[in-house]
């Protein structure tokens, strides 16, 4: 599954610079709002679903080489966080839906917790 399909189907807002999202493969999904858990639980090229919008999410995504972050419930990262994400080439997307609903849609699309 590529990121462009996910953005289209879930109608996600793109918070960071636009690029050709169809070339970005998404291999797995992970959800937690505790950054220490994400650091040990998420997988490279995975999609991270979270309500957290603090700038530390950018460093975590960069550390793990994640495909993208979906920030839920319209939580808004500040401009500094968006700038940092662009600088580190991290993709941040946004949804008005809560974690549960976003994950449900991704699951229906066939995205699972671990890469196969």
């Amino acid at each position: 599954m590529n990121l462009d399909e996910i953005i289209q189907i879930l109608n996600l807002k793109i918070l960071t610079n636009s690029k050709d999202f169809s070339t970005i493969k998404v291999k797995s999904g992970y959800c937690s709002d505790l950054l220490s858990c994400v650091m040990t639980g998420a997988e490279p090229e995975g999609l991270w679903i979270t309500l957290m919008s603090h700038s530390n999410i950018v460093a975590v995504a960069a550390l793990l080489d994640l495909a993208a972050i979906i920030i839920t419930e319209d939580a808004q990262p500040d401009q500094q966080t968006i700038d940092k994400a662009n600088e580190k080439d991290i993709i941040m997307l946004s949804s008005p839906d809560p974690n549960y609903e976003v994950i449900g849609q991704l699951w229906e699309l066939g995205l699972r917790a671990t890469k196969n």
Partner: peptide, 11 residues
Amino acid sequence: LIDHLGFVPPD
């Protein structure tokens, strides 16, 4: 802080 934010925000 460590569990929730992972680390002390460096800036």
